[in-house]
Design a protein around this nucleic acid. Structure first.
Lengths: 243, 243
DNA sequence: ATTAGTTCCAGTCAAAATGACTATAACTAG
DNA sequence: CTAGTTATAGTCATTTTGACTGGAACTAAT
């Protein structure tokens, strides 16, 4: 497996080859999931990284990724990569940006088309961890390989923006959720407290939120009502809807 | 010049070659400018297209584009292409999306990273027209080469969305403008009438709009005050700010 | 069984934003 | 000088937002 970029010819590339060879194309993914913080227990954003097993940046952590195959679309390539590295099959997967700076990789020139995914806690729990694949808190990453720190920063920025408008938070939750859980997602991503009463009023005003008859039992206090999200993902040109 | 996609090997590609060769990478641009409608005289959205001079889709109109060179960033490639085909150097240039479907081009597989640009009327007037380069109304394009109709549709959708929030309209206007001109931009892009008084109130509330002491003279009626936009373009990860 | 503690959830109230509209100012064309 | 047109300010009712209050519903401790 090839972490982040297509490193064909890496090492053997000399200046002449580099100037002549066409830029190689790779697919990477930023995968967000909610996990309870170790300290506070409140949900926070985490993402899985893979450790590079070859040069360049050998031993450093990087976004999952790999080359684009000839018989798969960009989206399919992102999906496959996700499955192969973390065995995840998230329902929310959207193109983030194409990164094509000249010096992203020290050897060959690489253009990376980056996707971002949101996975539910139930799925995220199934994600395999190993020596080479681990989850990290999105706000406490070390120095990553390539320009992957900048990529994660941009993904976080996009996530916060989408959150402010669209109905995207639900893809980080399970099928049924309480309004307080939705609020916790917003608080985790936007990194600020929200008034519970006002927040509930706004969420209930959106037509895509459906009240179920069920209540979440087993809590320590008054059982909250469970809701369900009935809207569509809504994304890019491959699968379009709202901003 | 190579319109829209890199067609190296086109024609000579057989099935075996196609399965083995890596997808080629191209840059295309959607360029929007405001021009007066022929019928009403009100400003409407136009964009320049180039006529393809070789197969596939020979003779059809397509977005300006070409291959990515080894020594230029994606943004630089888009800039250069713009300049070469239309001799435009727009200040607003942003990545739109990477299109990578399997059958975009009938011969070789092509991944296109598409940029979109906004140019001011003064610049647009200088844009060269020729046998092979012409401007078309964005809402009255015929059938274009490749998947370029879908790409333009997506660019229009993004433009409308950005218009609703961000401060993007000013990049379609000159340095000085009246509030009525801003409104006309919104009306052209969103395709609906807006109340002049309420619109003016909203625009004046945004801090990036600066009142100049000047007035637009030469009109048929009361001369409107001229304003200036002092904000930043504000874009993707290469040049970031607001949504 | 009662009480304290916590969360859920409905509701109030003032401030701010929005949409529809009116009135006046400032110019040109005749 | 007048009619026509646009620019601009302002009014007013409605809607949305932010801050806050209080009761309902449950658990845990006394």
């Amino acid at each position: 497996m090839n972490a982040g970029v297509n490193t064909v010819n890496a090492g053997s590339a000399n200046v002449a080859e580099r100037r002549l060879a066409p830029p190689s194309l790779a697919i990477s993914t930023v995968i967000f999931a909610l996990r309870p913080s170790e300290s506070s227990g409140r949900p926070t954003l985490w993402l899985p990284l893979v450790q590079r097993i070859r040069e360049p940046f050998r031993g450093m952590w990087a976004l999952p990724g790999g080359p684009l195959r000839h018989d798969e679309s960009l989206q399919d390539a992102a999906s496959r990569n996700l499955r192969e590295t973390t065995s995840l099959a998230p329902e929310y997967l959207e193109q983030l940006y194409a990164f094509g700076g000249l010096h992203r990789s020290p050897s060959q020139r690489v253009v990376s088309i980056v996707y971002w995914a949101l996975v539910r806690p139930t799925e995220a729990a199934l994600a395999e961890e190993s020596e080479n694949v681990q989850w990290f808190r999105a706000d406490r990453l070390g120095e990553l390989a390539f320009d992957h720190n900048a990529i994660v920063d941009y993904a976080l920025w996009r996530l916060r923006n989408k959150m402010a408008y669209g109905s995207i938070a639900y893809h980080l939750l399970g099928e049924f959720f309480t309004l307080a859980q939705v609020r916790e997602v917003y608080e985790a991503v936007l990194d600020r407290q929200l008034d519970p009463a006002n927040f509930r009023r706004q969420i209930k005003a959106t037509p895509e939120i459906e009240e179920t008859g069920e209540y979440l039992q087993g809590g320590k206090h008054r059982p909250p009502r469970l809701y369900r999200f009935t809207g569509t993902p809504g994304l890019g040109p491959d699968n379009r809807s709202t901003p």
